[in-house]
């Protein structure tokens, strides 16, 4: 079997601040095959976005990749020189950002922003580049792309802007797309459309998709695999149906329990007690231990990331191996 499209191995991205070392990403591993979708899930501040930026080599000082490997078709991106990385960025590996209102430059026309992307990686004429930009806009379902190319971002709605951003990401038919909560800022109806669009296009082009989100319902509908992050670490990973139906880690269970549902109408919403610990001074051992209902003295030792069921790993010494009623 050939190497997977993207394999992240023990990635550590740390920020060296005056107050100390912030281990935003601390030992994250996952694999995404061509045409598959990985849902990267976690609360704000769990390191999802930094993981995404690490893959694209866009971590700004004082942060840097402090360890581990990011294997893209077998090449390690973590040690790739910036010039080569730039050749991959937007070309083989693209990213879609969270807030579509902020990702397009307000003072440049859509065609400028698309053509420059085409020409950054392909030696083609302006006319040819414009043609490709137009086709990409058509692909993501933007009506009358010729006219829209001449517009400025503020003339688009949020959903349309996100489509433009997706079109830009798709320009070079990349092998990997990192999508950082691309539907969080959108209406539910638009969210559904964008999800369907993303799914269709990835299947069509065989793109490996890393979908970063905190919304489990999105992951349930879209992803093949899931990796749950907490305080910079992947605490559980596995096939999406298996993890959501029978979570091993108490944190995953808590996340699933926090989703408001019709089954618990009238009851107070469930929540995970406490709050995410500061990344500056994480407790030794399991970082979730202070909020975990099953914590025991053994949790003060760092738990191993072990496979409890086929394909399903968890970083916990007392996982929920019994069947769980949601």
């Amino acid at each position: 079997m050939s190497a997977p499209t993207l394999e992240v191995r023990n990635l550590k991205t740390h920020f060296f601040t005056r107050g100390g070392v912030v281990k935003a990403v601390d030992d994250v591993s996952f694999t995404v095959e061509a045409g598959k979708v990985l849902g990267l899930v976690g609360e704000s501040g769990s390191g999802k976005t930094v993981t995404g930026f690490s893959i694209l080599g866009l971590v700004d000082p004082p942060g840097r990749i402090a360890g581990g490997q990011i294997l893209f078709k077998g090449r390690d991106l973590a040690t790739l020189p910036e010039a080569e990385m730039r050749g991959l960025r937007g070309n083989r590996i693209a990213m879609i950002f969270q807030d579509p209102m902020m990702t397009l430059n307000p003072v440049l026309r859509i065609d400028t922003q698309m053509i420059e992307t085409v020409q950054a990686h392909a030696k083609v004429s302006r006319e040819e580049a414009r043609q490709r930009a137009r086709d990409a806009l058509g692909q993501v379902g933007i009506p009358s792309p010729d006219e829209r190319l001449k517009s400025y971002p503020h003339q688009f709605s949020g959903g349309m802007r996100q489509r433009v951003a997706i079109a830009i990401a798709l320009l070079h038919k990349p092998d990997v797309i990192v999508a950082d909560e691309p539907t969080t800022a959108l209406d539910v109806t638009i969210q559904g459309q964008i999800l369907a669009e993303a799914q269709k296009l990835c299947a069509q082009f065989g793109t490996a998709l890393v979908w970063i989100t905190h919304d489990l319902s999105v992951v349930a509908g879209l992803a093949d695999d899931i990796a749950v992050m907490y305080a910079g670490k992947v605490v559980e990973s596995g096939p999406v149906a298996q993890v959501l139906d029978a979570p091993l880690h108490p944190y995953t269970l808590g996340l699933i329990g926090s989703v408001p549902s019709r089954n618990h109408r009238g009851e107070p919403l469930r929540q995970i007690p406490g709050m995410t610990p500061s990344l500056l001074n994480l407790p030794a051992g399991c970082a979730f231990r202070s909020r975990c209902p099953r914590a025991e003295p053994g949790c003060a030792e760092p738990p191993p990331f072990a496979e409890y069921r086929p394909g399903q790993h968890a970083r916990c010494i007392h996982p929920h191996q019994e069947a769980v009623a949601a």
């Binding site: 694209l56 730039r86 960025r89 693209a94 902020m102 990702t103 400028t112 992307t117």
Partner: peptide, 25 residues
């Protein structure tokens, strides 16, 4: 701004990011 990071994520050269995306703003 996100649009500067996005411009970098598109693989543009630092010169283009600075003189087109940042400068005009």
């Amino acid at each position: 701004m996100d649009y500067v990071k996005f411009a970098r994520a598109k693989g543009l050269s630092p010169a283009r990011v600075t003189f087109v995306h940042v400068f005009k703003n």
